[in-house]
Design a protein around this nucleic acid. Structure first.
Lengths: 160, 160
DNA sequence: CTTTTTGCAAAGCGTTTGCATTGAA
DNA sequence: TTCAATGCAAACGCTTTGCAAAAAG
């Protein structure tokens, strides 16, 4: 569902919401459109900011609660992060994450080998597995250019 | 380093801390011991509670700041979660995570195939990759027994 | 018309910061 | 003796809650 048009996305949302008995409000449509178009794991606040452009009266709470509702019905996902504000992700095709341990940034990447990973039988038995993802972590190129704090500690000692 | 004794763990901590010019305080030793023995991804508050048993005067801030310091020097890790309080994980051997999308619980599991995953060349070039992990997500057996909220919504409509 | 949803405000919870005091090296 | 680490307290940011008004079905 990556190349779908905005129209198709909205239709998808409306269909799913109606199935579940959720009401179709303009606010929800706007929130869904913004978050499903976003490519960078926005926080509720960022979504609010964008939606606010065309809905000056919408409240932050509505945006936040709408995002949580969408998450519960599986329309979007909450990205796993290391603390900090919650980040949302439109449910799209299979992809994987690289997370920078210094700045916390999460970068999507695609890899066919990873997509082919099998889910172990014992896990399938114990749990209901909906999704799999490989998470690589380390340092992004921007943070690699900067000194690590641990280096700083070491150097400050070495200098004395 | 999974079967190391408590003594070995402390030695490991002391060696690493000295290398970096960090001071060895009783508080830091206690925090390190508690978190390295824990098996369930404790929050700062949980670590504080445990350490507090033997250090009635230690402050929450010291525990929290110590955990962050340990994270920066790579002694422990921050677990990726979906919002909620930050959770810490002793750096041990290669393992993977299953996360329940309903209750947020994170369960470690081991899988040799996953351990053997190669890190793609283009990722290695772009970033410095320290760690890899497969994250499965879905519903744990406890939550599977309960109704999903989306089911609830559907049913409450069906009943009317 | 009924019930959900919205907007607002306040409360809650976890994290971070500043600073004087303490303690490791 | 020096500088990092600690403890305390206040500030901060994000999330959650309660409720009256508004809107969808």
């Amino acid at each position: 569902m990556q190349k779908e048009s905005a129209k198709d996305c909205i239709d998808h949302f409306i269909k799913r919401a109606k199935n579940l008995g959720l009401k179709i409000t303009p606010q929800r449509c706007a929130v869904f459109r913004i978050v499903s178009q976003s490519k960078d794991h926005p926080t509720a606040d960022q979504v609010f900011h964008d939606v606010n452009q065309e809905f000056p009266n919408i409240s932050y709470d509505t945006v936040n609660r709408t995002l949580l509702t969408f998450t519960e019905i599986g329309l979007i996902e909450v990205v796993q992060t290391q603390g900090g504000p919650r980040r949302f992700d439109p449910v799209t095709d299979q992809h994987h994450h690289f997370q920078c341990l210094s700045c916390g940034k999460i970068i999507d990447f695609y890899n066919d080998n990873y997509d082919d990973l099998k889910i172990p039988d014992d896990m399938q038995k114990k749990f209901t597995v909906y999704n799999k993802r490989v998470v690589l972590s380390g340092r992004c190129w921007e943070c690699r250019k900067q000194k690590k704090k641990s280096d700083f500690i070491k150097n400050s000692k070495a200098k004395n």
